[in-house]
């Protein structure tokens, strides 16, 4: 498989295991470029989160490697940003200090970190929440705060594990379009796990449909790669192209 130099993150032939014996995935390859969003879609239990852990360097694969801008980062955490469905804001820190956490961890002074985070509050729709505690914010705002913290990790590759699924339907839709626009503007490369086919088709430049059942002894592989054709204008979700992509994903999932 050829890797273009423009790829921000690439996984090559990832074979993963939970315990060193049962294989979770076999030979999974994927790539994402700057400004792009790719989605991983698959049934629950197929090992989506395990793949993300491997991309984040939290687990070392049995075989295969993870390349960040062409550099091998397999099994090394700290070079890509990671965000979960749970906002995981620390309850004892204000929103400001939660957002600053990655900077402080990296050794920056508190003042320096705050100065860097302060101008971002407007962009993330969080003006006025600097001194609030996470428990005082709504679910959507907490999630935006978590995005801001993720952004301040300073990496141009972001891994998102079902980032919107804890939110209500309306907030989810808003957050989704907000994220796509913002990540495009900032030139982030995003890998998003979702169990929601519509969400994948709406967001993704490329969808990796994962098939397999590791618990039943069938390691997960990439079944199909679907590339939705997005028209330049109009409501994408009402177009024929949208349905074509959705049908392709659903067909691949059912196979």
């Amino acid at each position: 498989m050829s890797m273009g130099a423009e790829q921000a993150l690439a996984a090559e032939g990832l074979t993963l295991s939970w315990d060193g014996q049962t294989l979770v995935t076999r030979d999974v390859s994927l790539e994402v470029a700057a400004g792009q969003v790719v989605c991983l879609v698959g049934k629950s239990g197929c090992g989506k989160t395990t793949i993300l852990h491997a991309l984040a360097g939290l687990t070392t694969p049995v075989a295969g490697r993870v390349l960040l801008h062409g550099k091998d980062v397999t099994g090394k955490p700290g070079s890509v940003s990671y965000m979960l469905q749970k906002d995981l804001l620390l309850p004892h820190l204000t929103i400001m200090d939660n957002a600053c956490l990655p900077l402080v961890i990296a050794g920056r002074s508190k003042e320096e970190a705050r100065a860097q985070a302060a101008p971002l509050f407007a962009r993330f729709g969080l003006e006025g929440t600097e001194r609030s505690w996470p428990s005082q914010l709504s679910g959507g705002m907490r999630q935006r705060a978590a995005f801001m913290r993720t952004y301040l990790m300073g990496n141009d590759v972001v891994l998102l594990d079902e980032p919107f699924s804890a939110l209500d339907a309306i907030t989810r839709g808003e957050m989704r379009s907000w994220y796509c626009q913002m990540s495009h503007e900032l030139g982030l490369a995003s890998v998003v796990i979702t169990h929601d086919v519509d969400e994948a088709v709406l967001m993704a430049d490329r969808i990796y449909v994962l098939v397999g059942a590791p618990a039943a002894g069938v390691p997960t592989t990439v079944g199909t790669v679907v590339t939705p054709e997005r028209p330049a204008a109009g409501d994408f979700s009402l177009t024929e192209e949208y349905l074509v992509a959705k049908r392709a994903v659903l067909a691949a999932l059912d196979r």
């Binding site: 940003s81 979960l84 956490l101």
Partner: peptide, 20 residues
């Protein structure tokens, strides 16, 4: 998951202890 998140930020054991 919080500990994993801290690790992706490159946090040391001491930092994980102090902040989490």
């Amino acid at each position: 998951d919080m500990v994993d998140l801290m690790r992706t930020m490159g946090a040391s054991r001491l930092q994980i202890f102090r902040y989490v």
